[in-house]
């Protein structure tokens, strides 16, 4: 079984992002970029499936700027067999990504698509669901445990009430949650090996994919500054203060 893993280049989780003064977005110039942590978990899970003999090939894919190949190399160093880089400078949105992935799924015919449950930059958590829908495949999102048995997968999902276990037929789309696994540390020889693994560049505009309707960002603003508190003498003053501010 071939596993396709989709990953995203995002601002590193340790970076404190700043909103651009013109409100058009967050400043990412010169900021440290990394593989989205949930996507890294997806790569790790694919590697574990391969090591357990359940997967035969792991193909990792990303869509984005030239530098996003660093993230692909990192996934290759974790053990993925080859990479596809759909190159574009355009700001991608979930539906567009899902449509590009659909095209690649048609070409590659994987038995399983793994991806992070959401990206830590825009927190959309939509791409996996959209991809499953347009492929007409089963989906199992927020996976905390994944078992493959022949042409079926058993997925324990992390939901508000606890764990929900689903059985899905393959091929399917599975999105990965935080507790699924702990990604490995990359070994130095694997960094060297990754340089020699195939990385296929595919310009987005040559794929002939209609990205679909696009959302427009009108404004990005930081959360409002917290105002200093005020001490009140008694309950009566508290009530009148709350009333004055229209809070009760």
């Amino acid at each position: 079984m071939k596993v396709l893993v989709a990953i995203k280049r995002v601002v590193d989780y340790n970076v404190r992002v700043q909103v651009k003064p013109d409100g058009s977005g967050v400043a990412i110039d010169g900021v440290k970029m990394s593989v989205n942590p949930f996507c890294e978990i997806a790569v790790e899970e694919a590697m574990r499936l391969k090591e357990a003999g359940k997967a035969t090939e792991v193909v990792v894919v990303t869509i984005g700027v030239e530098k996003a190949q660093d993230q692909l190399r990192s996934a290759l160093a974790m053990g993925a067999d080859r990479a596809i880089h759909v190159t574009t400078d355009a700001q991608m949105q979930p539906l567009g990504v899902a449509r590009v992935l659909q095209k690649l799924v048609d070409e590659e015919q994987p038995g399983l698509v793994l991806m992070g449950k959401q990206a830590i930059d825009d927190d959309c958590s939509q791409t996996g669901q959209m991809l499953a829908a347009i492929l007409g495949w089963p989906q199992a999102t927020f996976a905390g445990k994944l078992e493959i048995d022949g042409d079926k997968a058993t997925v324990a999902r992390e939901v508000d009430a606890g764990l929900e276990t689903l059985n899905v037929d393959l091929p399917a789309v599975v999105t990965t949650d935080l507790r699924l696994n702990e990604p490995r540390y990359i070994k130095i020889p694997d960094i060297m090996k990754a340089k020699k693994k195939p990385l296929d560049k595919r310009p987005l505009d040559e794929l002939g994919v209609d990205l679909g309707p696009q959302l427009t960002t009108t404004k990005v603003a930081p959360p409002a500054q917290r105002q200093p508190g005020k001490k009140v003498a008694d309950v009566a003053e508290l009530v009148s203060e709350l009333k004055e501010r229209g809070l009760v």
Partner: peptide, 10 residues
């Protein structure tokens, strides 16, 4: 340079 950066990163 890329390999050096990758090793430092790890």
């Amino acid at each position: 340079a890329d390999t050096i950066a990758a090793v430092f990163e790890e």
